[in-house]
């Protein structure tokens, strides 16, 4: 089956992303296709490449990136949700003349249309709430 996933929670203030990556891994192992993972609301904080994880913890971002390396699927973050929360890729950082860019390169910054497209194309859509 073609699955799409929405992640609404930020690391540490929610278990959302952590549950979602384990679900995604199990789905891929079972042979399903992940069409798109869409990070929205506070989930837009997930791809923060500036975050430094304590040594005794596993970064949920690293787990998403590791999974994407094995099974290629789309990791997307909503541009509206990202910008207002200080999550910028190089292009947006330059556009808004900001001091830095922090969105992990493996994540595509996209519009809400990609969420609707994911729902239209996928057989199942699952939200991991904040």
């Amino acid at each position: 089956m073609k699955l799409s996933i929405a992640v609404h929670g930020a690391p540490y203030s929610s278990q959302s992303s952590s549950t979602a990556v384990k679900f995604a891994a199990a789905a891929l192992v079972a042979g399903h296709e992940i069409y798109r993972v869409f990070f929205y609301h506070d989930g837009a904080r997930t791809p923060d490449s500036l975050a430094v994880t304590p040594q005794d913890e596993k970064s949920v971002l690293d787990r998403w990136l590791a999974l994407k390396q094995i099974h290629d699927f789309e990791l997307t973050v909503c541009i509206g949700a990202a910008l207002k929360r200080g999550m910028l890729n190089a292009e947006e950082s330059q556009r808004y003349d900001k001091a830095a860019a922090n969105v992990s390169a493996e994540f595509e910054v996209v519009g809400l249309g990609q969420l609707i497209d994911a729902i239209m194309i996928s057989d199942r859509f699952v939200t991991f709430a904040a």
Binding site: M1, F23, A27, V126
Partner: peptide, 10 residues
Amino acid sequence: DYDEFVNLVT
């Protein structure tokens, strides 16, 4: 477990 979770979704 997560495998059954995936199954529930399908």
